[in-house]
Amino acid sequence: MNTITIYHNPDCGTSRNTLGLIRNAGIEPTVIEYLKTPPSRETLVDLIQRAGLTVRQVLREKGTPYAELSLDNMALTDSQLLDAIQAHPILMNRPFVVTPLGVRLCRPSEMVLDILLEAQQGPFTKEDGEVVIDERGQRVR
């Protein structure tokens, strides 16, 4: 049984496209709407480390209180940045996907293909019209 989890925001096109690619592989993942159910600090730190990122790399600026909280201040510690994400989950960039092959922050959405065991089952076109998977289920580069 393949266990896949996506930390998802249904209002985000990249997150919706990533979820679509997972489902296009015939997988129904565990979907965690992280704005409703934010990951614990421990889980967040684990996701960031397993994805090979820094806390600063997972901060989202657009549509968040990033500027008003002065999170661009390079003197802020990882602990302070994590405090901000815990207080304002919208600051966490998305979507994070966890599979048996690893953890990725799937931006762009097709990064999820690198950590799926199952092949795509048919064509897939992103919401913006970009073809990612052709009619044979093959990735378009």
Rank of each mutant, 00 (worst) to 15 (best):
V45I: 15
I133C: 01
M111I: 01
P95K: 03
E28K: 10
R139M: 08
Q121F: 06
G20S: 02
R141D: 05
G26S: 06
L117H: 13
L44H: 07
N24G: 11
L44E: 11
L82S: 03
L19F: 03
I32N: 05
R41M: 06
P95T: 09
P65Y: 05
D114N: 13
G26A: 06
N73E: 07
L116F: 04
P39R: 04
A87T: 10
V97N: 02
Y66L: 12
E61K: 15
T77Y: 07
I6E: 07
M1S: 14
E135Y: 06
C106K: 07
L116C: 04
S40E: 04
I27K: 04
V98E: 09
R50C: 05
L91S: 08
E135T: 14
R56T: 10
V55K: 01
D128N: 15
G13I: 14
G13A: 13
L81C: 09
E110N: 12
F96N: 06
D78R: 05
A67D: 15
Q121H: 11
Q120F: 02
Q86N: 13
I27Q: 01
D114K: 14
T125E: 11
Q80F: 06
R16C: 03
N2K: 11
D78Q: 10
K126Q: 12
L91I: 06
A75R: 09
D46K: 13
Y34E: 02
T125N: 02
D78Y: 10
N17Y: 00
G129T: 10
Q121R: 15
T18C: 12
D46R: 14
R139Q: 07
S15H: 07
P38I: 05
Q57M: 14
P89E: 05
Q49T: 14
S70F: 04
L69N: 09
P123W: 05
Q120C: 06
D83K: 11
P65L: 10
V31Y: 02
T77E: 10
T3P: 03
G26Q: 04
S70H: 14
C106S: 05
E33V: 11
L53V: 03
P10E: 08
V140G: 04
N93S: 14
P65G: 08
L76I: 14
I85E: 07
H8C: 09
G20F: 00
L116N: 02
P89Q: 06
S15Y: 03
Q121D: 03
L69C: 10
L19G: 00
Q49K: 13
L113Y: 02
V103Y: 01
S40Y: 05
K126I: 00
R136G: 11
E127H: 14
V97E: 01
P89F: 07
R94C: 11
G122W: 09
H8S: 09
G20V: 03
D72C: 02
R104M: 08
V55M: 07
P65K: 06
Q49V: 12
R104T: 09
T37V: 14
D134G: 02
G26F: 04
D78C: 10
Q80T: 14
Y34P: 08
P123Q: 15
L116A: 04
D83N: 13
N93V: 05
L101M: 12
A75S: 13
I90R: 11
F124I: 05
F96K: 08
L59K: 11
